[in-house]
Design a binder for these strands. Sequence first.
DNA 1: ATCGCTTTGATACGTCGGTATCAAAGATTT
DNA 2: AAATCTTTGATACCGACGTATCAAAGCGAT
Lengths: 204, 204
Amino acid sequence: MPKLADRDTRHTQILEALLRVAGSQGLHAVTMRSVAAEANISLRLVQYYFETKEKLLLAALDHLAGRQRERIQTRVLDTDAPDDPRTIIEAVLTEALPTDQDSRTFHLVYTAYAVHAVTDPALAAQPFLRAPDAMEHFLADQLRHAQRDGILPPHRDPRTEAAILLALSAGLGTGVLLGQRTAENATTAISYHLDHLGLARRPA
Amino acid sequence: MPKLADRDTRHTQILEALLRVAGSQGLHAVTMRSVAAEANISLRLVQYYFETKEKLLLAALDHLAGRQRERIQTRVLDTDAPDDPRTIIEAVLTEALPTDQDSRTFHLVYTAYAVHAVTDPALAAQPFLRAPDAMEHFLADQLRHAQRDGILPPHRDPRTEAAILLALSAGLGTGVLLGQRTAENATTAISYHLDHLGLARRPA
DNA sequence: ATCGCTTTGATACGTCGGTATCAAAGATTT
DNA sequence: AAATCTTTGATACCGACGTATCAAAGCGAT
């Protein structure tokens, strides 16, 4: 009966189960047992692949970050102008909003991790801040390109603007997650902000 | 030995103890026992004043919101121009940043509650979103006043700008909390943004 | 077929945490 | 002085959870 799956398959299977639990019932509902049940495997097998809960959680965080990276990349490449700064930036920021179940889960779980990291040194040591940090640099680069291309006013400071964009989309995302704001409301605000930045689309 | 305190004093004493625990070790470290220990009273007494942990947590949330309201009010009144929109808005947004231990605790605990609220209906029913919602209206009002006074360009939409301001300061606050950004960096970004809004100080 | 990796099951241990209970005693009020 | 409110102490119960252990069996590859 027990079909053998290779390690990678099992790993992702378990991690996806974890994310489903965390996404629907919160990170506090993630236990070795609940994950096993969600994945339809025995508790013992979860122990087999991830010896401790801490390792399991760290792996899940990694998995989550990877999925989000893929999502964003896909979103950018799916636009009609994947080399136009305005298009890229708007796609990135919009993708970061919790619109569908997947991105809701991402936001929820990631935020929960972040909260834990503030008081848990082991988690804080994790490459947690690297993703948003990289994103900020990426945005700053795009803004610099835009300035060179003459589609962003020269008096704008790319570094600061990038920080603002990132904080803005994170804040809006949280608002959407809490039901305090609709996703449409948030996307509108992002477009509005980019418009007033003076960040135009590159003419074809 | 046991001195009698009135209910209010005890309540706040216990709630402050809770916030100290939550602020230093995280909300997950808040247990009936840890709070009792932090407050230097018996577990039994915590049970006496707040029958269940849920009630205790809800009371703490209320207490937290109240303290933050006071903090912001004080901050605004302490400025040199407590009736100038630009001054008020900058004070409010800056106060919302986790600069000292108190505001760090606020951010941390509030965010932790927010994360819980997403998957806990009992918490979500709480007047959670009312504070940020009221703040957003307040900011929008200030912006409208500014427009009437001619210190904010008329093509700006106060509602959207208010939403952006709130999301921005929340996002920056999170960044500061996670150590990804300094408080100075964040305050700079806020001033920068207000400047580019075209929101000027009212001339004396 | 033997060896090694994978999977399950049952189960158990220790800890922690929310809640409950009983008894007793100090303090305040009337 | 009596009645009521406040406070402590000592426990106790029960459930949940992380972790560990032992035994057994399925499956793949050499």
